[in-house]
Computed example of a mutant assay.
Amino acid sequence: MNQQLKNRFNELEQQAQDIAATESTKSGAYSGVYQHIDADVILGWCVKARNLLSTACGRESEHFKSFVEAEEPQSYEDSPTRFKRVLSVFRAAKEDFEGGYLTTMRNLVQAEVFTTELEQADELLGAGYPLPAAVIAGVVLETTLRDLCAQSGLVPGKLSKMNDDLAKAGRYNSVVQKQITALAAVRNSAAHGKVDEFTREDVKAMIRDVERLLGMWLS
């Protein structure tokens, strides 16, 4: 996924350079001499760039919001000026993406969400509900593996397959792979309501191990 986004950033950067090269000088009876780039060409590029920023940065990000704001035409400005403005925002987002800053921000938010869910699982376990606690911890684990697959260019699937694929890709070693296999077994038993196949201590260890793995992957 990250490689696809990187490629798309590069494609749109090249398209932007090609568009900028079409700038020409025109004149009108009322407007006088002015610089011009075809408005429809700019619009098409902006739609593609906006879609990319929505995916790579998120619609609530400063990059996306600034891009949408930059698209708004200003009074008495020519099309090249407007294009340069949106291109500046696009290039700022591209730089942050390539520097890994967008991934870091997403990871921080994700880590906070997952921490809250694991705290909920811990509270359920403490209240005597090991089954839902194990299910929640399992969801956090599976969601994280899906994200790791996307980051590694792997196709997400069932938890066991993602675990095997990530280990083969070198995302983590065989020790971690075996640990995740054990965690997945508890998660599967809980998901099917087989409370006799795991203990309260198993769930407690599961929550602790998932939290530790998150610390490794999302830090």
Rank of each mutant, 00 (worst) to 15 (best):
P132I: 03
K94P: 10
T143Y: 02
R171P: 02
T181R: 04
C46T: 15
S61C: 01
H63E: 14
H192N: 08
I136M: 11
R91A: 05
Q177D: 05
G100Q: 07
I37Q: 00
R208A: 14
Q14R: 06
F9K: 03
D164W: 08
G58F: 08
G157D: 13
T25Q: 10
L52H: 09
R171S: 08
S219V: 15
K168T: 14
L12G: 02
K94H: 14
Q3M: 10
A127T: 08
L102E: 12
A185V: 03
L118T: 09
E71D: 05
E201N: 07
M105W: 05
Y34D: 04
A56G: 15
A92Y: 06
K178P: 05
A185E: 06
R212F: 08
E23P: 03
V155F: 00
I136P: 09
K6W: 06
K194G: 00
E98Q: 13
S75K: 07
F83P: 06
L108T: 13
S31Q: 09
E72Q: 13
D38G: 08
Y76C: 11
S31G: 15
E98I: 13
T115P: 07
H36I: 10
Y76T: 14
T104E: 09
P130K: 02
Q35W: 04
T181V: 13
L166N: 10
